[in-house]
């Protein structure tokens, strides 16, 4: 009778979990599989066996190397800066709370809740060549016309997209860090201080290992996001080099099926890049992620 209340048994457990795992895992696995098949030419409305034509077309395109390099560079720099910034904030915030902590936390949460497209539009209005900052600089007499303002947005090096990734993802990573850098981490940091460890030592040997299980997945999510994100690249990027996510969507929305296959070939390249990055990061950080068994 009371079985409805008690935590369900093994079978009930699987039954409760199945819908969630099926929806999230099933739909994304189906989406990945469909994409993979489409990239080798197997799609509805198209006859013939698998072929690597789409990959040949994509990889052989003269602009591909530049676009790929651009996308990976923007994602890597953006992720590196965002992770470092978030770690510094998180480390600083292990110290007793200052007067403005709640306000700063609120500000990060506010930024987190703003949709990506809106944030990209806001950055554009503020930092573009005719944006608000350029107007202030003009008002101060430092420049005479928008063309003289340094290209921070829609620039060749992706500074605008990187700025988007950094400003939008630092709050995200900080939020994932805060719950794991709780009381026990603070106590360990205090012990290290008493034992005479420098701030650098405390950061490297106490703080970093403690937050690694949270920051590594968060960093990978940020990398994947910035590699495959459409909105910031479309609003803050340039025509040449174009970010691969923008090229992929462009090919996807073209009417012919060959272009569609190319879109999925690009997406497979991006996916492979994420997997390689994940494997790389895992091998570099596994000493922090896999703890020896036993009480910690």
């Amino acid at each position: 009778m009371s079985s409805g209340v008690a935590r369900s048994g093994h079978r009930g457990g699987l039954l409760g979990l199945a819908p969630v795992v099926l929806i999230v895992g099933g739909l994304s696995a189906a989406a990945l599989l469909a994409g993979l098949l489409a990239s080798v030419g197997i799609q509805a409305g198209r006859t013939g066996g698998p072929s690597l034509d789409a990959y040949r077309a994509v990889l052989g395109h003269p602009g591909f190397a530049t676009s790929y390099g651009f996308s990976v560079l923007v994602a890597s720099v953006g992720t590196a800066v965002a992770v470092s910034g978030a770690l510094l904030i998180g480390f600083r915030w292990t110290r007793p709370s200052g007067r403005w902590r709640t306000a700063k936390l609120g500000l990060l949460q506010l930024n987190l809740s703003v949709p990506h497209l809106v944030w990209a539009v806001a950055l554009l209005a503020t930092f573009s060549a005719s944006g608000w900052v350029a107007r202030v600089v003009t008002g101060l007499g430092l420049i005479d016309r928008p063309a003289q303002f340094p290209a921070l947005i829609n620039d060749r090096w992706g500074i605008g997209i990187i700025a988007h990734v950094v400003s939008k993802e630092i709050p995200f990573i900080v939020m994932t860090l805060l719950p794991v850098s709780g009381r026990s981490t603070r106590a360990q940091l205090e012990q290290a201080t008493v034992l005479g460890a420098s701030a650098g030592d405390r950061f490297l040997h106490v703080y970093l290992p403690a937050v690694a299980p949270a920051v590594v997945p968060a960093g990978l999510a940020v990398f994947a996001f910035s590699l495959g994100a459409f909105e910031p690249a479309a609003v803050l990027g340039v025509e040449n080099p174009r970010s691969l996510a923008v090229v992929a969507l462009d090919r996807f929305r073209a009417p012919d099926l060959a272009a569609r296959a190319e879109a999925f070939a690009i997406s497979t390249v991006l996916l492979a890049t994420c997997l390689v990055a994940g494997a790389l990061v895992w091998s570099l950080t596994r000493r922090w992620l896999v703890r020896p068994a036993g009480p910690s």
């Binding site: 990945l32 994409g35 990978l220 994947a224 590699l227 495959g228 879109a263 999925f264 497979t268």
Partner: peptide, 12 residues
């Protein structure tokens, strides 16, 4: 799935 590029997931 959150660790995968969004554009590929959405197209799939």
């Amino acid at each position: 799935p959150s660790l995968l590029p969004a554009v590929g997931l959405a197209m799939g």
